[in-house]
């Protein structure tokens, strides 16, 4: 059962990823990407990491919708309504992404993975929280602030002043 689910989700994820580059509409590409990433999220449920799995689905949906907002804010093709190709520099991009995919797949298959030590904790979400809020707290705080600053800076730089500013 778990094996069938794994392969179904793996195929769905890769198929979604391929669809991102073969469709001709921004909206379809966005939602193909969402299907691909949500399938990865559901894969996490298979390894009993319910919190991370559900969180991935949650974050990916919000992320794609924010991408839709950016689509009308900043694109030369407003709202992505016109058909357009999803690739630039097709040959070079294909070569690079093919090489990266092959490299990563080879690494995953050829690495001598260590045998499992210990047993999974009864509550993985709790263990994750302790890890993030304990030893990795400083790293997580810095990364969080850096991401937020990047997002705000990008928007501020891109929109000098908006039409709806009330001054």
């Amino acid at each position: 059962m778990a094996v069938v689910a794994f392969w179904a989700l793996a195929v769905l994820s890769v198929a979604g990823a391929v669809a991102v580059f073969t469709v001709d509409s921004m909206a379809r590409a966005t939602f193909a990407l969402l299907v691909s990433l949500a399938a990865v999220g559901v894969l996490f449920l298979l390894i009993d990491l319910a919190y991370l799995g559900v969180l991935i689905v949650l974050m990916m949906v919000m992320e794609m919708m924010i991408m839709a907002v950016f689509m009308i804010m900043f694109m030369m093709n407003p709202a992505g309504l016109m058909p357009m190709t999803m690739v630039h520099g097709r040959r070079f991009a294909l070569a690079v992404s093919g090489a990266v995919f092959a490299g990563l797949a080879a690494l995953a298959l050829l690495t001598p993975w260590p045998a499992r030590r210990g047993t999974p904790p009864p509550d993985p979400a709790h263990a994750l929280g302790m890890s993030i809020m304990g030893p990795q707290m400083l790293v997580m705080m810095v990364i969080g602030v850096a991401i937020l600053a990047t997002m705000i800076a990008t928007v501020v730089l891109a929109t000098d002043r908006g039409r709806y500013d009330r001054r």
């Binding site: 939602f31 919190y51 559900v54 969180l55 689905v57 949650l58 949906v61 919000m62 919708m65 979400a125």
Partner: peptide, 15 residues
């Protein structure tokens, strides 16, 4: 993780 599940599903409403 029911609370997170509830949140994730209602965010799907955006989509």
């Amino acid at each position: 993780v029911g609370v997170v599940w509830f949140n994730a599903m209602e965010v799907c409403v955006w989509g």
